[in-house]
Write a protein that binds this DNA or RNA. Structure first.
Lengths: 209, 209
DNA sequence: TACGTTCTGGACGAGACAGTCAAGAAAGTC
DNA sequence: GACTTTCTTGACTGTCTCGTCCAGAACGTA
């Protein structure tokens, strides 16, 4: 059956992804990727095709992983849906704030660099955004059923807004916005979500100071 | 006094910017930039230094122009502050939605590609974000004085949220989100802004359907 | 052990690219 | 008109990088 492969595919893909992630697609050198993975270029080309194919593969895998992570963070019973949503939004802000090297999110970085000229990248990015938005929509709807979101609000619209805020936090983090300001954005986004009337309406307002 | 320059600096910078804008920094070729500007490479290097310096110049100019455009859109009397804010948010959504080629915003594209490795780019992006946020803060404060925003809300926090939403819309547009969904995000962001108590509270809620 | 097959690794070639340079052009000055 | 200075042009160079290729290694099979 021939010589078996001497490497773990997922490890190689992760190393390759990290190269693309830190330098971007165009600036990533195949030789560097080979060095980072420990493979010779022949093996790399034999197993994954050329640089572009390798990128598409790592990008798609990474995006799928992202969606799965969001699913794990947001899935669960309605009772805790609002709390899970809150925790997730804050976690994204914290993660972006603590990304000292400004590497940011590969999803956004890849889309920014390539979506104009590469339909496959644009399609993957779009699918990823849509999938995450659906997960947020479900979570908001759960919170609504549990009485933590105003009953007359549209979960899909709130989810769209929250997704935009999350992507915006990511974008601002790339510019080096302070951790505090990113946290403030996340808190404010949660604070303006419409709560049921029964709550003090004030609690839905960002406080001064 | 020697031979005078044969080109208009701002036109050359604009042409160079467009090259960086459509391909990204790393993938932009100096030969293409020269061709686009109509200059020989010698003139380009003589006038603007190397590729990196040229990019920094176009990036800084572009960001300064962006801030000026936002200032023009948001400056004015308190009476119309809320309306100007609303119009601006909707305009960004429309502009992103109609950006068929997914070129996106050079500010975000440059920051995504280079801020990790280039402090000057990160600093320019950060300054730009800060400047825009301050303009939004002023506008929100004006709207608050005019009675269009809840008096107990914190304009700076709302401005941070709005900036994040605007950047998020831009990021989602890069993935090819539908014009309708981008518009919906903008509308929802405006709808969740806390309005004064005197208004029907319902009007501050995104409607179902 | 001999053989076919698949993987490995790195040398190699072709092309692309950034930046330089030298010869000449266009201005001002005397 | 001679001279100085600055700008212009595009050919040129050296370097970098992608992708290929091939000799050999590591497996299963007979």
């Amino acid at each position: 059956m021939g010589r078996p492969r001497n490497f773990d595919e997922s490890e190689v893909l992760r190393a390759a992804r990290d190269q693309f992630w830190s330098t971007g697609y165009a600036a990533a050198r195949v030789d560097d990727i080979a060095a980072a993975t420990g493979l010779g270029k022949g093996s790399l080309y034999g197993a994954f095709g050329d640089k572009h194919q390798l990128f598409l593969r790592t990008y798609a895998d990474h995006c799928a992983g992202l969606v799965e992570a969001v699913r794990r963070a947001l899935d669960g019973p309605d009772t805790d849906a609002y709390e899970r949503l809150r925790a997730h939004v804050m976690k994204v802000a914290e993660a972006t704030a603590s990304d000292v090297c400004l590497r940011g999110c590969l999803l956004a970085k890849g889309a920014a660099e390539l979506s104009e000229q590469d339909r496959a990248v644009a399609a993957t990015a779009r699918r990823t955004f849509t999938a995450i938005e659906e997960l947020i929509t479900s979570c908001v709807a759960g919170a609504q059923r549990a009485g933590d979101i105003a009953p007359d609000a549209d979960p899909a619209r709130l989810a769209g807004l929250l997704l935009a805020v999350l992507r915006g936090i990511e974008a601002l983090g790339k510019g080096g916005s302070s951790p505090d300001s990113l946290r403030a954005i996340a808190e404010t986004a949660l604070a303006v979500l419409p709560r049921p009337q029964s709550d003090q309406d004030r609690s839905a307002r960002p406080q001064s100071g």
